[in-house]
């Protein structure tokens, strides 16, 4: 299980700040998220692993923390 954190519009769509999901890699996790929350599909979200932005798909281990990051909008 990995902990999944939702931010911005992803938090509004899922109605959750975080949850635990079963996934062995980020590609599988993306698929699971898109199936669970179809409204998220149009959102070009990126993923961060343990606080660092991911630039390619990677495997996941127990206790990893994945953040779902919609486009940033600071300033």
């Amino acid at each position: 299980m990995v902990k999944v954190l939702y931010f911005g519009i992803a938090r509004e769509i899922t109605g959750k700040a975080e949850e635990e999901l079963e996934a062995h890699d980020t590609a599988g996790l993306r698929h699971l998220i898109n199936v669970s929350y179809p409204e998220l599909r149009p959102v070009p979200f990126r993923l961060a692993l343990n606080g660092s932005l991911l630039r390619e798909e990677t495997t996941l281990g127990r206790g990893d923390k994945i953040a779902v990051l919609p486009p940033f909008a600071g300033g």
Binding site: F7, I9, A48, L69, P70, F72, A73, G74, G75
Partner: peptide, 8 residues
């Protein structure tokens, strides 16, 4: 800041 800060 606009590009990299994870703020919404």
């Amino acid at each position: 800041v606009k590009e990299k800060l994870p703020v919404w």
